[in-house]
Simulated scan of single mutants.
Amino acid sequence: MTTQTLQKIGFQHVGSFLRPEALKEARQSFAAGNITAEELEGVENAAITELVNKEVEAGLDVVTDGEFRRSYWHLDNFWGFDGVERFNYGEGYFFAHEETRDDSARLTGKLGFNADTHPFIQHFKFVKALADEAGVAAKITIPSPSQFYGELSRGVNVERIAEHYDSNEELFEDIKRVYHEEILALYNAGARTVQLDDCTWGLLVDPKFKDVYAATGFDINDLKRLYLDLNNGAIADLPDDLTINTHVCRGNYHSDWATSGGYDDVADELFGQENVTNYFLEYDSERAGGFAPLAKVSGDKQVVLGLITTKSGELEDKGTIIARIHEATKYLPLDRLWLSTQCGFASTEEGNILTDAQQWAKLQLVKEILDELWG
């Protein structure tokens, strides 16, 4: 492993961790009106402080707040923008075996970003202070701009676009603008690694969703170009010392999944043209396909193989994981590869079905393999 690659990536987790019971209970009490926002924040602060201590003890070079202040990996960020409201859609997202809660986000006006009111800026400042004290780096995960458009154009939500925008192109420019402003605000708060979590590419490769898109008048090739433009537009002209990761996922809810399909059909755009530094890629099951599309990863961009699943507590065989990494070197050299779990442990506050001890055992396995293969 080259020093340059190690400095860029380091041992880091995708993002979320299982919520402690005390935190879950506090969030329920707050929703019921039994505790104040300040009391809830106190519980969150204590839980995040304990989490960061555990991350440091586990050897992580880059820590997160576990997404402990969020209900969802994506919607909380959308709700922080001006011109967006939280509401109940009437049905959730349909995963392979479960339906999620039915929260969504829709427009109430033109999009705007305000660093003083968007909660993620202060959230990051808190974990950054903890990381600085511990001598490690901190990153923040946010949903991708393409994911934001996907929510705003979901079913009946799309009707709101025409109420507030004269054209889709005007909306696209505003999405890129508010994301760019958010990322710069995070940079000014000390962030040097921002990760765009993204399920939109996973939808485009799934056969059943291709049929859904076709039935609703969306063209897959048009969507590829749009998602690429939204994501690249948001991260254009950022400071040179800011690393942009992307994490490509196929759904992670209560140990369930939403989509299937290899990266082949989106590799040209996603791997060849998206202007990120590191790809965190789901590769924990056959639903993600093979490694051949990695040959299209352009320039000196790097791939973090998500070979360790967060969907179950069963610990993978180290030899099997190492063999898969060597298989991936047929398409990218080892010094452009790295290892992580396939996703976070709790993309929503429900969390996946495994224990706290099992999640840390998963990360210990990641570290053991990183040390063995890359030193």
Rank of each mutant, 00 (worst) to 15 (best):
H123N: 14
G90Q: 06
E159S: 14
G155A: 15
T310S: 09
D132K: 13
A47M: 02
T216M: 14
D335F: 05
D284P: 02
T277E: 14
A46S: 13
D61Y: 05
L307P: 08
A96G: 12
N168E: 14
G344V: 01
V276L: 01
L354Q: 02
G10K: 08
V212N: 08
F87L: 12
T49D: 02
S298F: 05
A214W: 08
E368D: 11
I161P: 02
A328E: 12
N53S: 15
A32V: 08
R101D: 11
S347E: 06
W338M: 00
H13M: 15
V84E: 03
G272N: 10
L203I: 09
N53D: 15
K301V: 04
F11W: 12
G150E: 02
R250P: 10
T36H: 02
L294F: 10
G262C: 04
I183R: 08
V156S: 07
L51F: 04
S153A: 12
R160I: 03
A131W: 02
F291L: 09
G299Q: 06
A189K: 14
G299H: 07
F87W: 09
T355P: 06
L370D: 06
F172Q: 10
V43K: 03
E350M: 12
V366L: 06
V266G: 00
K176C: 01
A58N: 07
N34H: 15
Y279D: 06
T5H: 11
D132W: 09
S146Q: 04
L60K: 04
H247D: 01
F291M: 12
H254L: 13
T243H: 12
E98K: 15
A129G: 10
A37F: 01
L242W: 01
I140Q: 06
D76L: 00
I35Y: 01
F291R: 03
S71I: 11
N221I: 11
I142C: 00
F120V: 10
H74E: 07
Y331H: 11
